[in-house]
Design a protein around this nucleic acid. Structure first.
Length: 573
DNA sequence: GCCGTTTTCGGCCCGACTGTTTTCAGTCG
């Protein structure tokens, strides 16, 4: 079993958590967290990189002599001695304990030493027995918060889908827009970075009366708990699980505050280090030289003071965007207006809810030049997937419809199932008559990584396949990606000149941002599709665009940004 | 534990809020 980057990162994360609980230096802990993030973000597997001549683990940022040796140990043995040693001293269950709001590593460790708390369960027991308020540094209030906190941790776990977060943001913004003397109101945080799932929400306001803002804030509909309420920062929990933070800032600090609260944390830390090297100080109030404030009102100004152009929020992950900005090679990110069509749609011939004519008309109304109708193939029997004959007859309908439409083209397509052995569910001579074939894995997804990778690569080998649908098969908060070597899939797509889909359904967003970037680096086109099963779902496109932008994609990287003529030229085998 | 235009030691992002304390540590973002 080859060791994956994620395995190494997970071990480092656990080591960081356990070190922190056992009271190690903050900087040592941070070193493990940094390295974990760097490794997780790599687009290629370390196992294969280390076998290349000239590659040194120490060249990775945040990896020195010691961590390089630890990575080698994990690659060779699959585990880390340090982790096993730590687990002997610190119960792993304490990591869950630190997830309880208000309990951090220090307090968790104190409860372990004083009361023998080892996990959430023993924590709950101790709290119910009233033992916690007897421990030094803990009082009755902390004990009550713990009881509530345990409940929240257990019920939680899932981050909110970006699309759902957007609805919550709208409601919060609408509520807050009634604050008297309001000057600015913006959402920051991971929501603004367009991260596929959002943990909590950060709202920034500029207003005449901070008290009024805080007072209005704690009356947001659905507030179940007020976590904090101060003159510049308040925090509530809505709908029982979603935390919303309010920051009240001065107008001349608004840009610095937006920068800071948009994050990511890694991006902000990198910016602050950069500021220090230039003899400046960056905080949420501005950029300072000695005690003089030299920037702060706008983000442009803040980045400018550091010698940088404004970096789009979607790129702020400390994955090379700062270096790219310094060198003037930030990507010009794809936008909705660049999109010329949608290449994955369903109709009521299978599991869609709209008729062919209706969804075609809706796509045209969106200003697209083309759309591909890609109903399921026969293997998806549950939704009456089409066989060769039904497919040919549906394509004849499309031809007729095309004759009646001007300045818009429907593509004769199919979402053809990839069978277990990598062959396709529709005969080649029929596929050869399609305009657009998107191949898709739906069944028997529980195979080994090697077999699944072979299955998908073989499908890509078929010259009729234009794209691979939802390549990882993941559903956010619902099911993990298949075991598949995405590196090999991307390499195969490059070899056979196929595109990879970025499926825009809010729960899929598959491929993810890192795979987008890797596809781009390999010259593989990405098609951003909605997989719409109804007219309204054509609007999913913007979720896919969010993800594409996080993946550094420019319009030239996106298949469905081509004009109709260029697309057809490309698709003709 | 990492890192270097303060380079092999001594820094490392930084401020607000809470609960507990009585001047501050821990947590959080």
């Amino acid at each position: 079993m080859p060791v994956e980057n994620a395995d190494i990162a997970t071990i480092f994360d656990e080591v960081a958590d356990l070190l922190e609980i056992s009271g190690a230096s903050f900087f040592r802990v941070r070193a493990y967290r940094n390295a974990s993030r760097v490794i997780r973000d790599l687009s290629r597997s370390l196992a294969s990189m280390t076998s290349e001549p000239g590659f040194k683990l120490e060249d990775l940022p945040g990896v020195g002599k010691d961590l390089a040796a630890k990575i080698r140990e994990i690659l060779e043995t699959g585990d880390l001695r340090l982790r096993r040693d730590l687990e002997r001293d610190v119960p792993v269950g304490l990591i869950d304990v630190t997830r309880v709001a208000g309990l951090g590593p220090r307090k968790a460790h104190a409860l372990f030493l004083e009361l023998g708390v080892t996990d959430l369960e023993s924590l709950g027991t101790a709290a119910k027995l009233g033992e916690i308020q007897g421990v030094k540094g803990f009082g009755p209030k902390t004990e009550a918060n713990i009881l509530e906190g345990i409940y929240a941790v257990k019920g939680l776990g899932n981050r909110t889908l970006w699309a759902d977060a957007e609805r919550k943001v709208r409601a919060v913004m609408e509520h807050m827009s009634a604050v008297p003397g309001l000057k600015r109101l913006e959402a920051a945080g991971s929501f603004r970075r367009r991260v596929e799932t959002v943990g909590d929400l950060d709202i920034l306001v500029v207003c005449d009366d901070p008290d009024a803002a805080a007072a209005r804030f704690v009356t947001i509909p659905g507030v179940s708990r007020v976590v904090a309420r101060g003159p510049t920062r308040s925090s509530v929990v809505v709908d029982g699980e979603f935390q919303v933070d309010l920051r009240v800032v001065e107008e001349d600090s608004f840009g610095a505050a937006m920068q800071y609260f948009t994050g990511s944390q890694a991006h902000s830390v990198a910016l602050r280090s950069m500021a220090l090297r230039k003899g400046l100080k960056l905080n949420e109030y501005g950029v300072f030289r000695d005690d003089e404030k030299i920037a702060g009102a706008t983000e442009e100004e803040v980045y400018g003071a550091l010698g940088l152009p404004l970096i789009p929020p979607e790129l702020r992950e400390n994955r090379g965007e700062i270096g790219a900005a310094l060198e003037g090679r930030l990507p010009s990110l794809v936008e909705q207006s660049d999109v010329r069509g949608d290449l994955h749609l369903h109709t009521d011939a299978t599991d869609g809810r709209a008729s062919l004519a209706d969804i075609a008309a809706a796509a045209k109304r969106k200003g697209y030049l083309y759309a591909a109708v890609t109903d399921h193939s026969k293997r998806v029997a549950m939704v009456k997937g089409l066989d060769e004959r039904a497919l040919l007859s549906s394509w004849r309908e499309i031809e007729k419809l095309n004759e009646r439409m001007s300045a818009f083209h429907l593509l004769k397509g199919v979402e053809v199932d990839v069978l277990e052995d990598g062959s396709l569910d529709i005969a080649d001579d029929v596929l050869s008559r399609a305009d657009f074939v998107i191949a898709s894995v739906h069944y028997n997804t529980n195979m080994t990584r090697a077999r699944m990778t072979r299955r998908i690569v073989k499908a890509l080998e078929n010259p009729h396949v234009d794209a691979l649908a939802h390549p990882s098969g993941r559903k956010l908060n619902k099911r993990p990606p298949y075991q598949v070597n995405m590196e090999e899939v991307i390499a195969a797509a490059a070899r056979f000149d196929a595109a990879l889909e970025l499926n825009s359904a809010p729960r899929r967003l598959d491929i993810d941002d890192q795979a987008c970037r890797s596809a781009r680096d390999h010259g593989v086109k990405v098609c951003i599709s909605t997989d719409a099963h109804d007219v309204s779902e054509l609007d999913f496109m913007r979720y896919g665009l969010n993800q594409a932008r996080r993946g550094w994609l420019e319009k030239d990287d996106v298949l469905n940004c081509l004009t109709y003529r260029s697309l057809m030229k490309r698709l003709r085998h």
